[in-house]
Design a protein around this nucleic acid. Structure first.
Lengths: 341, 341
DNA sequence: TTGAAAGCGTTACCAC
DNA sequence: GTGGTAACGCTTTCAA
């Protein structure tokens, strides 16, 4: 037998309106009645029917706010594509999305963007944001108040959120280590690490994963230097040239963030084909450098699926299909070489 | 402005019932009126609303039939898991799925299974079946009659179907070739190919892709022998032992189908750790052999996504969200090594 | 051949 | 505090 608001109302001996008010905490119900209905709902395993919900609420759609540091970062184009797919899939079920893009990782910019989304009356959030106390507290408060908050692409430490949708950075780093070990080299690896920022948890994890796996495999390696590009190609190029001049024995450049194109430019300029790069993600220039053989492989994280599933999770929470605390969605760690581009 | 049956009816100066009859070819409408409505629908870009549809037709759900050669083949467990996810996602929108599993690739068994599904009144099909004239003609006829037919995991040549959901076998093979080239070896590669069946298009493409990419990369290699396991582990083990006895210089076993466990057993028994295997897909035993270092890497095809999206595509066609001819859904070619298992 | 009306499960709103 | 009712978009049935 199907469990509906109607059958619930019948069982509790009240009207559908009352059941609805209880289920949505819209108050104005005697506590004892409310409790009885809640118990009944749980007992019968009531799950709201999206079709009915969508139809009834078609004038008041579900509004989900998305914050992306996508300005000037091509990586997020794929995330956005995934978000658009989710909108296409669910718009006739009442899904509406507001995307707010910012540039970089400045805390106040991000905090303001979150407030912007809330002012737009978003009922759930998908955030790709920074690991900062101010942000963390805001998220905690929102979750506390019952709003689904999905963290997208970048998790935040010790925060109370619905779930994280993104990649496992450490595994991604370890995968690079595993592949490097497979490519038995004549000389030991002398690695230059060009990281995006030492403040980015994900970038650090990628470095840690690499080291651990190379060690575990017993590969001879040395991290010659770790430099920060701040995700700028120009800066990445300068630093790469400079470091290789100082350490001519470098034979591998490990690029943990953006700035891939800059590293590629440096390696092309140097004309030292024995030096190769390893990178993450797959934007246009990365693909070109892979084709050229300058990048040996790149490890990707399915950005499109991240965008799609973050929105889907938030939507499912809003429609009562998922609880406010759900397991994380970890995307696959995907190795791309020239052959499977 | 939203395009609904109501607005369409208004614009055409008829009732909603008439519009519905036209849209579902349920006859009994004056041809000229029908034509006018069809034109209007196209012009306005009418897309049916799933919520309304699901609600109204909640007693007559959409029934999708799935045929899988899953008996005795663990690979299909993941496909089934994806199908179940799709059911969970769409059951409250009226989706119902009937799965028919068969063993092996015998044409009549498959043909009968298809008829079984049709007798169960399925309105769309997802088929993982054999490339045979009899089957092809049946599919052509079904498509002709307006039924969405999705081919799952295995495509069929020159057939008229809605779309193919599965992997690109040739790219998968080429990826193996690319990776092997990256692992510069002392001696040239002497490869034993243990294929599932020479009648399986996918298996052949995996071999072809490997050869092409190794050649393209200028790697020295030789295919010492190609043997058929018929997806049996016992047979694979026997053949592997036998071939390595005859050709002691074999240093790599390329397993294109099932039978991975058998090859692994043979390599363990031989105690020749310099010989490694390469395989496809990721079942329990494959993971173990990867951990042991007997398999160097395995190339996977996201079976769960295949199951999910095949059903989703069929469902979308049934609800009028997608036309009867759609672009294929090709899953990623995923390299798994010990580090990213 | 066509139109009118009921009903699917939910929510919003107004009356009690 | 609570119940009744209309409305969402669609399909189905019955009557004309």
């Amino acid at each position: 037998m199907k469990v509906t608001v109607k059958s619930l109302a019948q069982a509790a001996g009240v009207s559908r309106g009352t059941v609805d008010r209880v289920l949505h905490n819209r108050g104005a119900v005697k506590p004892e009645v409310a409790q009885r209905i809640r118990t009944l709902a749980k007992e019968f395993g009531y799950v709201p029917n999206r079709a009915g919900r969508a139809l009834a609420a078609s004038k008041t759609p579900f509004k989900i706010g998305v914050l992306l540091p996508g300005i000037g970062n091509l990586f997020f184009d794929d995330v956005k594509a995934g978000i658009l797919k989710a909108v296409a899939d669910y718009s006739d079920l009442g899904l509406e999305v507001v995307v707010r893009e910012v540039q970089g990782y400045e805390v106040n910019t991000h905090a303001n963007a979150i407030e912007y989304l809330l002012n737009k009356n978003c009922q759930a959030l998908c955030l790709s944001t920074v690991d900062d106390p101010q942000i963390r507290e805001r998220i905690n408060a929102l979750t506390q108040s019952g709003m689904p908050v999905v963290l997208l692409n970048t998790d935040i430490s010790a925060v109370n959120r619905m779930c994280y949708v993104g990649s496992d950075y450490k595994t991604a780093g370890a995968t690079c280590g595993g592949l490097l070990s497979m490519c038995r080299h004549q000389e030991p690896l002398k690695i230059l690490v060009v990281t995006g920022s030492k403040l980015m948890l994900g970038h650090n994890l990628r470095i840690e994963g690499l080291k651990q796996e190379l060690t575990r495999q017993g590969s001879a390696f040395e991290i010659v230097a770790v430099v920060e590009s701040n995700d700028s190609d120009i800066r990445a190029q300068e630093l790469t040239l400079q470091q290789i001049k100082v350490h001519p024995d470098i034979n591998c450049v490990y690029v943990t963030g953006a700035g891939v194109q800059g590293v590629g430019a440096a390696l092309i300029a140097l004309e030292r084909p024995e030096i190769f790069a390893i990178s993450f993600d797959e934007v246009y220039t990365t693909r070109e450098l892979l084709q050229e053989g300058i990048i040996k492989f790149t490890v990707c994280q399915q950005p499109e699926r991240q965008g799609y599933h973050a929105v889907k999770r938030a939507y499912q929470a809003l429609t009562g299909q998922l609880p406010l605390k759900t397991e994380d969605f970890i995307t696959d760690t995907i190795i791309k070489i020239k052959a499977n581009l």
